[in-house]
Design a protein around this nucleic acid. Sequence first.
DNA 1: TTGATATAGGACCTATTCAGTCCTATATAA
DNA 2: TTATATAGGACTGAATAGGTCCTATATCAA
Lengths: 150, 150
Amino acid sequence: MVRLSKLTDYASVILAQMARQPDVLWSAGQLSEDSSVPKPTCIKLLKLLVKGGVLNSTQGARGGYSLARPPSQIPVKTIIEAIEGPTAITECGTDETLCRLTDHCSVMSRWRELGDQVDHILTKTTLEDLISPHTLYARSDRRIETLEVH
Amino acid sequence: MVRLSKLTDYASVILAQMARQPDVLWSAGQLSEDSSVPKPTCIKLLKLLVKGGVLNSTQGARGGYSLARPPSQIPVKTIIEAIEGPTAITECGTDETLCRLTDHCSVMSRWRELGDQVDHILTKTTLEDLISPHTLYARSDRRIETLEVH
DNA sequence: TTGATATAGGACCTATTCAGTCCTATATAA
DNA sequence: TTATATAGGACTGAATAGGTCCTATATCAA
């Protein structure tokens, strides 16, 4: 149901480190060393995060990576999607037979609504929250309030 | 991030059908036919749902399956876990090296809190909601209110 | 008692996805 | 020009998901 892939786990640790010193230009080697993530894997993650708009990169000698935005403006949803790709709660459309069932599509719209609620949480929570020493629940501005109908 | 496996998708369609006529004893063959889910797979799902406490089964000729509880008392979380097994947001413990990092465990507790919020939604939403023709948002008793700190 | 009809439980195979590695190209600074 | 970075891709092995099949057991009816 809700599971972080190992790579997202790694990425969040790497990003947490970067977020604590947002002005440093980090090299892949440095990040790999500090985070214990094997260098090839670390490099792969950094590339994905650049592609996903989470990081900026500077090429060449003395180059490296830095956060593209302040931690408070990086939703965890963005991080997850950068690593795992865009993910809907159901693909729907793969199985034509099922989709013709009366039940199927109505049940699926409920699932999709559930997915929206989860999305809402993941969008509201940011990298800043991840590195905070305080529980999410303690922050009134981060509590999940009644959802609005759009 | 949040994705229904195909099998959970199938299971929800099957359960939706059963929920609309809760007093019928359904045979696997009947359910397979009505839901377009291939019989072997359908049977597998039904077994998992029995094991997970969602369904009751009656063996022998004229046997079959029925809901173990009223739809309003079957959280979707129970359904998901019956099919996909218990799933935590991170395994944690698989990678000893990462776990020794100062950052890692604090970041992971935030992820875990996020997981708890999602859990909360999945526990509050039931099979009854899934088969409802009305959007989840329209039901005030199903809206996600401020979470409590335990 | 026997046969037909169900579920129970497990083994098993295959396809897809995930994790991880490696190679070559390109950009930059000294 | 060389050393040091990232960029982009191909590739491999492992893990998981999806799907099938076989044998055992329980129940009902003739």
